[in-house]
Design a protein around this nucleic acid. Sequence first.
DNA 1: TCTAATCGCAACCAGGAGGTTGCATAAATG
DNA 2: CATTTATGCAACCTCCTGGTTGCGATTAGA
Lengths: 109, 109
Amino acid sequence: MSNVTEAVGTAPVFAALGDITRLELVARLSDGKQHSIAQLTDGLDLTRQGVTKHLHVLQRAGLVSCERVGRESRFTIRPDPIAKARDYLARASAQWDDAIERLRASVEE
Amino acid sequence: MSNVTEAVGTAPVFAALGDITRLELVARLSDGKQHSIAQLTDGLDLTRQGVTKHLHVLQRAGLVSCERVGRESRFTIRPDPIAKARDYLARASAQWDDAIERLRASVEE
DNA sequence: TCTAATCGCAACCAGGAGGTTGCATAAATG
DNA sequence: CATTTATGCAACCTCCTGGTTGCGATTAGA
């Protein structure tokens, strides 16, 4: 996969993580268990509908999945996309680490 | 630093990376060298002003720095924040890897 | 069955994001 | 000095985001 293709897929993940509320939701979901909307709303200073919207953003980015059980909507974290994002940043840092190292070396020679 | 404090600082970085154009700009800047706005605009399908706005977003998030040299504004990548974001994701994945592993173990016992 | 809990959908709102255009300014160049 | 190059600032536009409220539907519990 080319860099561009990868970036196109990764950007929405970063966008989804680029909000404090959603970052908090991801943190709460990081126990790997299922959480209902009401449960996730508790302690957050916004409406259930507000939380619902954030959860849908996370879902569209592929970061969480949802399963309807009885009257509850249970959300679960989906590890893969975040792992991809992590690897993307890891490669990016490695890339400029190398570049900057080469620059420094060429200056000092 | 607490998890919340860290998230508050990291979210803007993710938000800045959550746009394909900015991701492309970061990629171009990852050679560690300085790039002018005109230079960065070349090849991107939007106006110089559009690129300028994106660069300012990156700058506000701390991802790049700008130095005025003659009539040029030269932008350089700033590795630290992205490294922080990378570490944040690395710890997050480690966290749920552990959690999921524990869940699986408790189910199988 | 009546009530409380949990949720979805739709409307609405203010503000910001992403993008453009027009114009003015400073610097390099012939 | 006249011109081109590179930029900044401001106004303007459309659309999305984050948030709310209101209401109806479904499920669980006494």
